[in-house]
């Protein structure tokens, strides 16, 4: 599959752009957190498209953001189950 570029994204409507980015991010996130991939991808899709494109190119920045999102999600779930 060809890498997703800003030019390719720009040709699609905004909602479709997020779907396109999600399709690329989801498999990568699934490798790290199979059970949380859908939720984590959804959380990350709120980030600017330009930053998401960068994360697709940089495993390191993607991992950092994914871990951040997982930590936030788990803290939230722990808080919910405590109440």
């Amino acid at each position: 599959q060809d890498p997703l570029t800003a030019t390719m994204l720009a040709t699609a409507p905004p909602q479709e752009q997020k779907q396109m980015l999600g399709e690329r991010l989801f498999p990568l996130i699934s490798q790290m957190f199979p059970d949380l991939a859908g939720k984590i991808t959804g959380m990350l899709l709120e980030i600017d498209n330009s930053e998401l494109l960068h994360m697709l190119e940089s495993q390191e920045s993607l991992e950092a953001k994914v871990k951040e999102a997982v930590a936030v999600l788990q803290a939230h779930q722990a808080k919910e189950s405590a109440t």
């Binding site: 779907q19 999600g22 991010l25 939720k39 959804g42 959380m43 951040e68 999102a69 999600l73």
Partner: peptide, 21 residues
């Protein structure tokens, strides 16, 4: 708490197209 993109636990879950019917 301040809204931080990528940390919003209420964000909608992403469904990849291969899982859609």
């Amino acid at each position: 708490p301040a809204f931080v993109p990528g940390q919003n636990v209420y964000a909608a879950e992403f469904v990849p197209s291969f899982q859609k019917s």
